[in-house]
Design a protein around this nucleic acid. Structure first.
Lengths: 112, 112
DNA sequence: AGGTTGTGCAACTGATTGGTTGTGGATATG
DNA sequence: CATATCCACAACCAATCAGTTGCACAACCT
């Protein structure tokens, strides 16, 4: 996954409405109207959110007659979690605990 | 962590510059100027990015004389990864593979 | 004291975001 | 055929974002 694609995924996840949509889709596929129902916003607004999720490739659309159900795609989700885990790991190799580290820093500060 | 805080974290991670800053910080603490050096942008711009990371509580600042080093804080990072893992898990319980699922959907479509 | 270094704040700008309303197209249903 | 349902496109709007420049201030160096 490129840097840009990763940015799209995180940006998509940065909105509560979109995360709620993903949570809903984790429990099963849904149409736009089904997804829009719980929200105090227009169908078009939800449609826009879905488009963002689609561009981030977090959901796939299917075509069933005039309905276009959304399906969660977890590949990018895993990639995003992977990025976090990777850098979390690098950090963990350096320090046991943040508190300890901060304490070390403060000692340096006091020595001024 | 509240929904808003989670949004701040994901929004902070959605920018390549900010992710690069975090990657740098994973390898060790750094000052603003050290962080700004690799980027083709002003120190003030980097300072703004750091502020975003600070509000998301992904970094903590310390004060050492006139310098204000940045320290990575992985707590929120873990929370963000946790959110992904949780909903990934719910989804995984339902379907083995996306392909299979999509195939099922297409069968339903044909039966119309 | 005077200059350099490290940093933050304020004001401005152009682009993007997240919402709206209005409309129209494709697909059922009566 | 007429009507309702599901959805997307377009235009618009206010707010936020990511960058800039200019400046100020505190701390350190000579």
């Amino acid at each position: 996954m490129t840097t840009d694609e990763l940015s799209l995924v995180f940006a998509a996840l940065a909105d509560p409405t979109r995360r709620a949509i993903l949570e809903r889709l984790a429990r099963g596929d849904a149409t736009v109207n089904q997804l829009a129902e719980p929200f105090a916003m227009s169908q078009q607004a939800v449609s826009k959110h879905i488009k963002v999720l689609e561009k981030a490739r977090l959901v796939q659309r299917t075509q069933v007659a005039q309905s276009r159900p959304c399906v969660l795609d977890t590949v990018r989700l895993d990639a995003a979690a992977g990025w976090i885990a990777e850098h979390r790991r690098v950090w963990a190799e350096r320090y046991d605990r943040l508190d300890e580290h901060l304490a070390r820093l403060r000692v340096g500060e006091e020595s001024r």
